[in-house]
Write a protein that binds this DNA or RNA. Structure first.
Lengths: 149, 149
DNA sequence: TATTGTTATACTCTATAACTATA
DNA sequence: TATAGTTATAGAGTATAACAATA
């Protein structure tokens, strides 16, 4: 039996992760901490609760990640203007600089990924992958509604 | 700027992992333990050293995974016929049954993934992904030879 | 009463280093 | 000497539960 699209996609997943790791390991970051920084960069200054929701992890988990990122100088904790329970997490200059570098790496990977593919091929892969993504979303929706029923 | 192939592939990676998790979480397995079982199923009865190499983790790590899988009845440890230092890990009947179910889930996902795609589209996505996979391999080879230099 | 974030505790995965038994 | 696997130790990520401060 030949290799399927699923197997190729799984192989691609592993290699993409390895490639992205090289971006953040050089900065002394881990995958989870980078993920938090990525969301923080996307959302702008956020409470830990907002980050917990964005990352889909517990509040306790965010406390640990922010502790580590604060200790290593990537983010700072500040007071929330109106809610005295909440903490506002903000990128430091270092954090913002690292995120800009990461965005550049991301864009570069994006380009290199489709090297040796014609524009027409890129378009057909793009549309095919959109269908696959939609299929996956449907599968997971069906599964979760099934198990919740 | 529109969504790129990289972003779509990253989204697909996450959903594929979520879908596959449902296969093994129901059996009380974790991702790492499932990965070990998957390799063991592929290789047949193996020493822990062979598993460590296949999974690209340390020997210590395999000790822990095999401890857990042995305790929960998925594998057994046996003597190596000629090397008295080595341990041979084998799937139990339960382990083998779970792996057959996992293979069925894998095949089913493989089919459902490309639902609503014509055969011709599947072929063009398949060939496009092969090129992308090759591009990634080249990128990582270049990076590792660069950092080893 | 509900929410935000922390402390307390525990489990899994992972790694390095030192060690035992064997090769 | 080298290898297979274990013990010892440590760090990261994750989770649940109890709690204090605040809403």
């Amino acid at each position: 039996m030949s290799t399927t699209i699923l197997d190729t996609l799984l192989a691609i997943s592993i290699l993409m992760q390895k490639d992205l790791e090289q971006s953040f390991e050089a900065s002394g970051l881990t995958a989870s901490r980078t993920h938090l920084l990525w969301e923080l960069n996307r959302l702008g200054p956020s409470t830990q609760r907002e980050l917990a929701d964005a990352l889909d992890v517990t509040a306790r988990n965010v406390t640990g990640l922010v502790d580590a990122l604060e200790a290593t100088g990537f983010v700072t904790r500040g007071k929330h203007p109106t809610d005295r329970r909440a903490t506002v997490v903000t990128l430091t200059d270092t954090g913002a600089r690292v995120m800009r570098a990461m965005e550049r790496d991301h864009d570069e990977l994006s380009r290199k990924l489709v090297a040796r593919l014609s524009d027409r091929n890129v378009a057909s892969v793009e549309s095919g992958l959109s269908v696959i993504l939609a299929n996956l979303n449907e599968l997971l929706d069906a599964a979760s509604s099934g198990s919740t029923r």
